[in-house]
Nucleic acid binder design. Structure first.
Lengths: 118, 118
DNA sequence: AGAATAGTTTCCCATATGGCAAACTGATTC
DNA sequence: GAATCAGTTTGCCATATGGGAAACTATTCT
């Protein structure tokens, strides 16, 4: 099931890097509500198109979005599987911690009678 | 409930940036299994201590880890709440998309009789 | 055809990042 | 008190990143 760890690392690198910028997160957020062309996507932001295109490129390289051009307009849409991949790593890690936390909670509860939570 | 959006953005920036590096993810992963001192944490990696300390610093600034020094050894531990914060953004976004996907699924199902998935 | 539109490319700039080596501080051990 | 050990600081370097200006391409509108 786990195919070549190495590339998965690189995928996570570019995924998290793509999400580490407010402009790019806003674009993802916007695209989750529906596909849109580049110009329209760029309107809420103060930067010029070239700078904005770099952000789109980062998002596309990371796999978070896909784009296709018809005529002179390029339409962007989100690839939700990639978003799930990032979430997957996090929840996997949390599971590790939570496993410990649950065991700790079990231990604490086995020592003290349960009272109301603070 | 939502206290000053602006700082939340900055927090997400540094959170995702902290996670956008295999060394740092490995450290988080390791620390989720228990606290550890700097030297011991650094051993699996090829880089020198100064470089490694920079990674720890990025993790600490992001809030993903906390550290305290006793005598000459600095002990690092993970702050699971921050991990949850990153996961929170992602699952929140996914919820938006999933809401749409579910509605789309409902629509598709209302049009076609269910068959086996490809 | 000519003008406007949507992207794209190229070049440039300042700053951030990730790594190194070497010198240094403070705690512990011999 | 000398040596060692854990961590820190300081410079340095190459590359990556995020932004701009200007010139260019390819469509679409009039």
């Amino acid at each position: 099931m786990v195919r070549h760890m190495v590339n998965q690392q690189a995928a996570l690198d570019s995924l998290f890097h793509a999400l580490a910028d407010p402009t790019r997160r806003a674009v993802v957020s916007r695209l989750l509500k529906g596909a849109a062309p580049v110009k329209q996507l760029s309107e809420p932001f103060e930067m010029g198109l070239p700078a904005f295109l770099k952000h789109l490129s980062v998002l596309e390289v990371s796999g978070l979005i896909r784009t296709e051009k018809h005529g002179r307009v390029r339409t962007c849409r989100v690839d939700a599987e990639r978003l799930a991949a990032a979430e997957g790593w996090l929840s996997q890690q949390r599971a590790i911690w939570q496993g410990r936390a649950d065991r700790l909670a079990d231990f604490v509860e086995s020592q003290n009678p349960p009272e109301q939570n603070a």
